[in-house]
Design a binder for these strands. Structure first.
Lengths: 220, 220
DNA sequence: AACGTTGTTGTACGACTGTAAAACAAATAG
DNA sequence: CTATTTGTTTTACAGTCGTACAACAACGTT
């Protein structure tokens, strides 16, 4: 009996590797099939090691949820960060970034949904969700406010929040439908639908957002 | 050792009871904790009985998903079925029905999300989802079309579908956010936000839909 | 009232679960 | 080169899992 050869990794590297293996297993097998042994196997590591990095399997799952959420909101926020952009272009970029890859992804949707399903019964998941949702809303309000200002529209906090909630709603909804590969329509047109819908929700003049629609990549 | 007294129920009654016990367990404990024994206990039945009604636990879970979806779309469609309603009132009723109880429910959201998380990896779940989604879209197109007609607007299938996709998106998104009890805002205002947003998305004149907002029930 | 059908219970089994803890070896320091 | 630390593997264990099946009892039939 010869032991398996192994490498000692830095805490961060190993931890991240374990979290990603956890997410991969949850996406493929669900919370049900994502057992400690299977996660360890996916990370090419023995099962006992998990407990060296996480106090329990439940905690590891929770940490992997926080890790995923960090990726999602990070990618979305980055999409709005364009240099020298008008307020309209920044908003359009944020919306677009949320309904196109890498955020538009059936894998990420699977994970997100699986975890959202635990929010009601598990306070730890609820905390993570609430924080990320609040952050998303704040980003959106911060993007909508200057657009209203530039259009000479009222910018009281109540209207701003209502618009942010609505825009957040349609972003979530279209992201959801577009990420599930149901084959019922072409997700390439999703960006235009999203921009046009947000124009309508905020009552912006036509083409205020849709003019920032990136030309579709041609396919032969 | 005396055996437990029991009653023989009709196939439908027992089957429904088992499906509801399954949903209750999944909502509380997740797909992880919803074991056959726990489901049986919730249905006040021995564990062995499950296999008498379902060929496997997996199939029972799938059936419970279809059962849930049937409830959701059924309730939603019923909300749009108002006698002698104008096209605008019917559409407003459908939208409202989707962002108010009983459809607005953290329990139903939990279940829905948990199952959606399996759509990507399990073809059986994907089939159920696709069918229900298509049905939802068709209902929506059927409600939007007469509204466009009454407003003297173009009603080509492509525009109709685009609008249905967008409206479906915001309904899903707002239902989602409203059902999670995050405590970040009052879900009572959700109906107005939804109706107003849909007005904007479809480019209807102001108050076309919001005038059908039911007066809020007063609280002391 | 006795019978037959079958919905329902109880038990058993091997596989798998999360976790604990001892044995080991890879990297680091001296 | 040796000693030390500790990340990693291995083994072990009690509990739970989904499932199979035999025993049983509730109900419909006669």
């Amino acid at each position: 009996m010869t032991r398996k050869a192994f490498q000692r990794l830095s805490e961060d590297t190993r931890r991240t590797s374990l979290l990603e293996a956890t997410l991969a297993c949850v996406a493929d097998l669900g919370l049900n099939g994502a057992s400690a042994r299977r996660i360890a196997e996916r990370a090419d590591v023995s099962a006992g090691l998990l407990r060296h990095y996480f106090p329990s399997k439940d905690q590891m799952i929770r940490d992997s949820y926080a890790y995923l959420i960090g990726q999602l909101t990070g990618d979305a926020a980055r999409a709005a960060d364009q240099k020298d952009a008008t307020p309209e272009a920044a908003l359009a970029g944020f919306i677009t970034g949320n309904v196109t890859p890498p955020n538009l992804s059936s894998l990420k949707l699977s994970l997100w949904a699986t975890f959202i399903g635990r929010v009601r019964a598990d306070p730890a998941f609820a905390d993570i969700h609430r924080d990320s949702y609040r952050e998303f809303l704040e980003i959106l309000e911060g993007l909508i406010h200057p657009v209203l200002l530039a259009q000479g529209r009222p910018t009281d906090p109540a209207s701003c929040q209502r618009l942010a909630i609505a825009v957040n709603g349609i972003i979530d909804g279209l992201w959801l439908e577009g990420s599930i590969e149901h084959g019922l329509y072409n997700p390439n047109g999703l960006t235009e639908i999203a921009l046009s819908a947000c124009e309508g929700i905020i009552r912006l003049p036509e083409t205020t957002l849709t003019r920032h629609l990136a030309p579709r990549t041609k396919r032969t």
